[in-house]
Amino acid sequence: MNGNVKNNPLKKVLQIRGMGQVLTVTVGLIILCIVFGIINPTFFSFRNINNLLRQIAPILLIGIGQSYVLITGNIDLSIGSVVGMSTMISATLMTHGMNPWLSVIITLICCIAVGLANGLLVAGCKLPPFIATLGTMTIARGIAQIANGNYNTDSIGAAAEGFRNFFYYGRFLGIFSTVWIAIVLWVIFNFILSRTRTGRHIYAVGSNPDAAKLSGVSILGTTTKVYVVASICSCIVGLTQCASAGMGAMDAGNSYELYAVAASVIGGVSTLGGQGILLGTVIGAAIWGVLQNGLQFAGAPVAIRNIVIGVIVVLSVLLDVVVRGGKKIKIQKNK
């Protein structure tokens, strides 16, 4: 019956859920790149593109985390604070002479604990996710501040050279290591979301938790997993920031949770749950990065950049609401 579809690779790609929105924003991204390229030809220089990719990578990582959470129909406001917590804990440990890799492991464990707490509060205690993660957001920021006695840390020192190269300065095939980390994690998390049982459960919980439960899906388990993924992604971003600065800053990752929402929704992830793919998050993060980078290149002040990005976020969601709103009316007519 649908052999026709199977034989046509293009159609098969188009059939993937949410691909329509991704293609639309991809066109937008290409147009943006062309415009910035015309304004300033050095936009397309290898050097700038390489820097641009390194700017996009952290947004993509937190975007992956937030997309996971949004697809279950929840939200994670603690992402930015966990970034700060990760930076401060790892930097503090290293300035006290701990082996960088051991520090990384301890930091990861601390961050995962926040993710577990989020999952238990939201799915176990049935708190509204906005409130629960608002609480953990404040707590995590407090931990970031208390880690080094309410001061930013000193330099993490020469012993951490390997750490700094691994997370930020190193290159492989000419591309910065941060970008490679983002790519590897994206591939892993995209595979989990699109090809495994856990991934399918994530969509089912976001689409209809009652039906998912009656189909044997564990709501608590699935919700906890997505919050843990978000905390892992935030932790990695915090480590890259620590590696980049060579020290820990208490306000690292400020507002990142909202940048993550922006990257997700520009890429077509629905804040209502059940919809979105990580390919969209890539495009969303790229649009974010290109706008930042391109507007900076074009000489626009920070204030203008913020306004433009804000407008883009609202427009992309508005577009989505208009498109889906139209569909809803159709379905009702069919009944």
Binding site: R200, Y203, A211, A212, G216, G274
Partner: peptide
């Protein structure tokens, strides 16, 4: 509508959901 189907997901995903094991 409330307990049986994930209406945002495809027919394929709905049928497969309880049988993913």
């Amino acid at each position: 509508k409330k307990d049986g189907l994930c209406t945002k997901l495809s027919i394929r995903e709905n049928i497969a959901l309880p049988n993913l094991d």
